[in-house]
Amino acid sequence: MPTENISSSNAEGGDVSALFPELTRDDVLSCAFSAWYSKLRHVTFKSVVIKPLDSYFIEYLGSDGIVLPGDDEAPKFGNRLEDDDGSDWSDYDENDSDEKPKMTVNIDAVAAEIRQAISDLGGKVFPRMNWSAPTDASWMSCDKTLQCRNLSEVLTLLKSSDKITEDIDGSSFISRDEMGEWEHELVLRQWCNLFPSMEFRCFVREHELVAISQIEMQHYEFLDSMKDDIDSKITELFEGHVREAIDPENYCFDVYITQESGRTYVMDVKPWSAKVDSCLYLWQEILELKEGEALGLRLFPSSIDGMRHYSNKYAANQFPKDIACEGLQTSIVEFIQKMAIQQANEDGAQSD
């Protein structure tokens, strides 16, 4: 569900971080999952929030290596192990029993809550913490999703993710010193098979929706005819629910629109930060908007082959994402800007 962060460079290659207003601790805490979930429960996916997390569990997540509870099922991640009698997770040489990795802390209490939440949510969940999901650990899954069906799968993804490490440390968006103390939370979301084509990122500046972008770096022809409807549905969601639920005046939120019913769901809320992917916009475009201006909805253009440059959503797990994505993002934005100027000139010529 959630997407990756990318570099904060603008089209000229400079750093746009200085253009952002100072991000405060309260801004970051207001975008933590539990801060907005209760207010938007009726327009988002069913979830279970486990908090407070005891210090032993946080210590376990921060420890080196992946040691799983010995009494739990091995990670399956889809059908990876269902037809396999052996696995790297559970098979040990009987003569090496003394060398098996062992749990050094007791996480039984949290483990029980995780198992119960998985059961309550239908047997399949998507894990995350306060601000981040372990999208950088998707390589652990054979189908590159974060679908989990048991405790071991949840723990494996959490412990394999650098994003979760930053989340636990509190340094995802501001420094650890600025964050001070806060309450860690583990979130298990009901698993849904979402179409990436219907995911959109929305940018709210001074409590106004100023831009909407398709998230997936690929052209979908059917979206072109839906553009006005998508814009209308997201604006209605923002005006009717999101605006009053989120405290900061500047933030981003992600939306999913179901293809059959057209219902809109809030997927995530993110702080107004250069660390957040601006998708088909450059942050500079958004930050330099004047009062009352808006950029509307931007879709991936058909004239650019995104798949040649950006092979998949989690390409950052295989090589530096700024190499794969930043150049593509800039070329897309420049292309869209040139097409807008050309269209304006043509419209002007016709009116003359």
Rank of each mutant, 00 (worst) to 15 (best):
M307T: 13
F20V: 05
L194C: 04
P320R: 03
A349G: 04
W131C: 03
G296T: 02
C31E: 05
P196A: 03
L146F: 10
G170S: 03
D83H: 14
Y251K: 02
D120P: 03
A349D: 14
E166A: 07
L29T: 03
E113S: 12
F319W: 06
I215F: 04
E208H: 14
C202Y: 01
E206R: 14
L287N: 01
W89M: 06
G13T: 06
I168R: 02
S17M: 09
Y251H: 00
C148I: 07
A109V: 09
C279E: 15
H42R: 08
I114K: 08
E199L: 08
L194Q: 02
V154Q: 02
D305T: 12
D268K: 06
I336A: 12
L121Q: 01
E260Y: 07
G122S: 02
F126M: 10
I107S: 05
F33R: 00
R176W: 06
K270T: 09
Y37H: 08
G13Y: 05
G122L: 01
W283I: 13
F319A: 04
S7T: 15
A340N: 14
D167G: 06
R128T: 04
G14T: 15
A74S: 13
K124A: 10
S161L: 05
V16N: 05
D229A: 14
H241Q: 09
Y310M: 05
A245K: 02
F203P: 01
R263L: 10
E82Y: 09
I215Q: 07
D108L: 08
E334G: 09
L186P: 00
S47P: 06
L188D: 04
E288I: 11
I164M: 00
K227H: 08
E216S: 13
S152T: 10
L282E: 13
D231E: 12
M198A: 06
A349L: 15
D224C: 08
T44S: 12
D352H: 14
T235K: 12
G292Y: 09
P2W: 13
G78I: 04
A211D: 01
V269H: 08
I215T: 05
N106M: 03
A117D: 00
N10G: 15
P21Y: 09
L299D: 01
S331L: 07
S232Q: 11
M179S: 03
M267S: 07
Q214V: 09
